[in-house]
Amino acid sequence: MKEFIMNKKLKIVVLAKQVPDTRHVGKDAMTPEGTVNRAALPAIFNPEDMNALEQALRIKDKTQAEVILLTMGPGRAADIIREGLFRGADGGVLLTDRKFAGADTLATSYALSQAVKKINPDIILAGRQAIDGDTAQVGPQVAEKLNIPQVTYAEEILDIQEDKLTIKRRLERGIEVVSSPMPLLITVHATAAPCRPRHAKQVMKYKSARTASENAIPEASYFLPLEGNEHLKIAEWGVQEIGGDENGFGMAGSPTKVKKVENIVFQAKEAKKLTASDSDIDSLIVELISNHTIG
């Protein structure tokens, strides 16, 4: 375990994900063919990752820690890094590579853990789960790959001592207070404090922040040049930069495979009238079992 020195500046990584806003699914969320119409759903900063960012910023308030956002996704995911910078983060890394495509939670965790190793933080914070999958797996899997302790369902970081953190966890029917040495990974629950809003000074400072790919488009010439403005550079890492086993990424590194996807068809609210006959009740039960309404 890494030696922690009191006067050393803490480094915190916040794992964040850009997700389609599944909480506000409108009529056009599904295409006529029955596939998900991603274009109709706004891409947002995953809500619990925002709670995690706030916990990181509170540690920064107390200890002058450095807060770095790490996200994996397509080029447009740089938006959430800018959002984090506007709210008080100090830097960001976008993990993007065709080789990451088709990753399940395990392959995602592998890529994230490789990037985290490169940053070498004292604390890793993440939302408990992302609203597009609700799996809550990536946090614990990254912790395992880094061989460090994990504290899940955190509601508040109560105290930060020389070499350990005291954390309040929110469980189904109560709370638990635990202490853990650093480095550690913490996943933050939705009941934690909401994230502070954007800060005007930060917005002014970082509004031209961009990745090298974004800088390559012609319109980028309107912004401040990246040369000589180091703080505006959003790092863009791929397999090359983070290293590791190429077969651990993307589809190849994913043990789970999607066999089938069915859409939930929203039927018009018109009651089907049934009688108490054996056949009516039998066919209702069979229908409920086959569409997974009852297990």
Binding site: D104, T105, L106, S109, G133, D134, T135, A136, Q137, V138, G139, P140, Q141, A143, E144, K145, Q150, T152, Y153, R169, L171, E172, S254, P255, T256, K257, K259, H292, G295
Partner: peptide, 30 residues
């Protein structure tokens, strides 16, 4: 809160796939 904390840690160590919050489990071919 226990299973969702433990299972992903175990699956990562064993590199075995894990599916969260299943509503149905069946046996079949693929």
């Amino acid at each position: 809160s226990v299973g969702r904390d433990l299972a992903p840690r175990v699956s990562s160590a064993l590199h075995s796939g894990l599916t969260a919050d299943c509503t149905s489990l069946e046996i079949g071919d693929h």
